[in-house]
């Protein structure tokens, strides 16, 4: 079975699929960020289109619901002039018993060139990539609790935009690390970009075992974890975590792990606050922080479009807006 690296990169080290940050290298990540930067000008034009994906059909397959990721993918595809097929698969074929592989093969019969897939199983994007025809590409829009690589890249874009260089940065990722594909991708990306210190902050029930093996330092105390950081990334707390006996209550979680103005003062004065969304105000983050002047949460969403454009352009062998 091919490993990540073999699967994602072709013989010349170019992106063939985009499945996980793990298995990529610093050069590719930097190229994605640079390419995305060249696309920001397109996004700001009156006519927001370039012909890079003209004649290419992209299928957006969301087996799990999504608002932000799906719409920014669709916008990115439109701005690259792709033909788009968006399927809400959670309400269609697989519910009727069709296997994932059959769904894939039926769509391939419609001459799809690129799949953007979100699925509840960890490893589903790799599974797709292992079974598509040669020449067809797979982009992971979130697989189970494994990775969400385009989200991580837009987060890296945001950090680079505000902080320029990763090598002196302290970054804290706060919240449900255990169930978070975003956190896993972010951690790999931050490590590949030589971030000085990556901290994860969570109660023990929301930390996977051997978290340190990912290359992070673990804090169970938010106030210690926030001390002198340059970037705070808050993760969404899903309500069902209370039911699984992982946490006592939202109220206690906010008391111990909620990001308030007061706590934010422990970070560096120029620290930025990020959140992959959708945020629960008053659960993991105070409204005043979310709307405050250190928050870059909305900028993350807009950067998401150019980052996704960049990844798709690189997969079809184009390296920027000018070409």
């Amino acid at each position: 079975m091919p490993d990540n690296l073999d699967l994602q990169l072709d013989d010349n080290g170019r992106l063939r699929h985009f499945l996980s940050i793990e298995g990529l290298n610093q050069a590719i990540l930097t190229e994605i960020l640079d390419t995305a930067e060249s696309f920001t000008s397109v996004v700001d034009r009156t006519i927001k289109k370039v012909p890079i994906l003209r004649g290419i059909t992209v299928a957006n397959l969301f087996f799990e619901s999504s608002t932000r990721t799906r719409s920014t993918f669709e916008l990115a595809e439109q701005r690259l002039s792709a033909d788009i097929l968006s399927l809400n698969v959670s309400t269609s074929a697989t519910v009727k018993g069709e296997s994932l592989l059959d769904t894939l093969q039926n769509l391939e019969a419609m001459q799809i060139d690129m799949f953007v897939i979100r699925h509840q199983d960890s490893g589903s994007a790799h599974f797709f990539a292992q079974h598509v025809r040669p020449g067809v590409s797979v982009l992971n829009a979130g697989d189970g609790q494994h990775e969400h690589p385009t989200q991580a890249m837009l987060d890296m874009y945001t950090i680079r935009h505000y902080k320029k260089d990763f090598s002196g940065l302290r970054v804290a990722i706060v919240g449900d690390i255990l169930h978070s594909r975003v956190a896993r991708s972010q951690i790999h990306a931050l490590n590949l970009l030589n971030t000085a210190e990556i901290r994860v902050v969570a109660p023990r029930t929301l930390l996977p075992v051997a978290t340190e093996s990912l290359g992070v330092s673990v804090y169970e105390d938010l106030e210690l974890g926030l001390k002198d950081v340059d970037v705070v990334i808050m993760l969404r707390l899903q309500k069902e975590r209370m039911r699984g006996a992982l946490l006592p209550s939202e109220k206690e979680y906010f008391r111990k792990y909620g990001l308030s103005q007061e706590r934010l003062k422990l970070a560096r004065p120029d620290a930025i606050v990020m959140h992959p969304g959708p945020a629960n105000r008053g659960v993991e983050i105070e409204s005043s922080v979310m709307d405050g002047n250190q928050s870059v949460i909305l900028q993350q969403v807009s950067f998401g479009i150019s980052v996704r454009m960049a990844v798709m352009a690189m997969i079809v062998g184009q390296s920027g807006a000018s070409s």
């Binding site: 960890s122 609790q145 494994h146 990775e147 075992v209 051997a210």
Partner: peptide, 12 residues
């Protein structure tokens, strides 16, 4: 439940 499941995000 170990480093591999943690990295792959597999329920452990």
């Amino acid at each position: 439940e170990g480093a591999v499941a943690t990295r792959l995000g597999l329920p452990s």
